[in-house]
Design a protein around this nucleic acid. Structure first.
Lengths: 267, 267
DNA sequence: AACACTGTTTCAATTATTGAAACGCTATCG
DNA sequence: CGATAGCGTTTCAATAATTGAAACAGTGTT
């Protein structure tokens, strides 16, 4: 995923009707913080291949709106509170939620079970969008509910694609046991993650809620996990259609990922 | 909080060595999405007082890095996946957050309740980091949420250490009453602050959220309050461990303060 | 059928951006 | 202890990128 590319085409001297350069550089500065949480002016300038003075001005501009924050002592910059604010806005009305809605409806209708979108939230994940199944007996999801990372397939489908050391960091300490089927050992969980990565889906039989089976697949944007799509229902009813659910959920998650990367929907 | 201001001073024709205008405008475009989840080009241009063509270029620039995403059908823009990606980075590597994280985890684990970091934000405070308790019943904090200064122990622990005249200035006007236990009189609040300064901790029994007890202690950097550490949970469960919580929270806040004043944290 | 409204493209004027260089400053090293 | 190398910041003239008005192409409404 190229994001440090400055100019796409500099061959021809003219005809560079591209994006606004100054704004684009500011965005590149922001994105640099996912490689390293803390940057100094010179270091960042060297990394991005830009001038010191230029980076300095961009950083103060970003700081003026709260997107970064300068440690007064070390003179180094970290991401600021405006990011968290925007993230909250995105959780309600972001492109992910908007794009996922029709896909969830499709899943819920085809499989006749509830479909949910989850996003990572610290060492947990949060349900941001749900389309319940039509029938009276169904999994009724609560939008806004937060569930620990190791609880259920939806969590596996997200955190399996986190860097392993980050997972160890996030899930340090005892993992609460929700019932007999909960994965409580960290190494067991990491082994489980390996299979999830290989399969592209996670399946849970009552690991969080008892007697509930769920099938989840990750969706990506710019090469990173940003959430998971889940189909979930009562265990006895799901058992007959797990295979179908696996195919559908995986396909939908892939299509969603493609939309998020900017490729227009082909269907 | 003015954030739609274009130029700060346009009186004098020269001497505008301010932030980079193009980048700043791009940030204002981003911030507009917390007012409305979806924007069209013309509408946004009118709201920000800028030209259509200008906004269009900025939006495509933002879209190029994934900060916004255009619905191909409606041609309207929403916040994109890059926001969520950055939010994840900020959750781990924000300024204070980097230093506070291990302390919060320790508190949450030891007391088995949610632990939160708050920072002052005008006449309010904002939750910038939360480590939720493990169990199913817990205070689930929302990162980015802003709460008025006089609401809850976390606010007391911060603003008790502000200069008194500054507090009078900030909290001039009526203080909203959240429930029966909210402190709404400024003099009562200042008296309360005196006790908080003496104790080094603030305790709230349902002053903001009903049936919720919280224990908060301030953390300092360079002699100034920069935030507060809170342990918070359901009132009935907390009542048995308030004394323990007071000791732990105070101790952790002091250790955090020492870290902030001492060795530069490199993650 | 004309209208009002989108989003997009074009293009010359000008304005804001840019990068090199100079400036304090702190820490490291010989 | 003085020199040096690194940092972040400021300055400023040249330049190149931004800008906004206007024209364009659709769409849905009146």
């Amino acid at each position: 995923m190229p994001d440090s590319t400055e100019t796409v085409a500099g061959v021809h001297p003219d005809a560079d009707r591209g994006p606004a350069r100054t704004a684009d550089r500011a965005l590149r500065v922001l994105l640099a913080f996912r490689q390293r949480p803390e940057w100094g002016v010179s270091d960042l300038a060297r990394t991005l291949g830009l001038d010191k003075a230029n980076i300095h001005r961009l950083l103060t501009t970003l700081a003026g709106r709260g997107f970064v924050l300068a440690d007064p002592d070390t003179r180094r910059y970290r991401l600021g509170p405006a990011i968290a604010v925007l993230a909250r806005a995105a959780e309600r009305g972001g492109a992910l939620e908007a794009a996922a809605r029709p896909f969830l409806s499709e899943l819920a209708h085809d499989l006749d079970e509830s479909a949910i979108l989850n996003v990572p939230h610290g060492a947990a994940y949060r349900c941001t969008l749900a389309v319940d199944a039509a029938g009276p007996i169904r999994y009724s999801a609560t939008v806004g509910e937060t569930i620990p990372a190791h609880g259920g397939a939806a969590g596996h489908a997200i955190f399996a694609f986190y860097p392993v050391d980050q997972v160890r960091d996030l899930l340090a300490g005892a993992l609460p046991k929700f019932n007999a089927h909960t994965v409580v050992d960290l190494d067991d969980l990491l082994a489980r993650y390996e299979r999830v990565r290989a399969d592209g889906v996670a399946i849970s039989h009552g690991e969080f809620d008892p007697n509930v089976t769920s099938v989840a697949a990750p969706c990506f944007a710019a090469g990173q996990v940003v959430g998971s799509v889940v189909v979930i229902g009562p265990q006895d009813r799901m058992s007959g259609k797990v295979d179908t659910a696996v195919d559908r959920v995986r396909a939908v998650a892939e299509r969603l990922s493609r939309v998020l990367d900017g490729v227009p929907t082909t269907t």
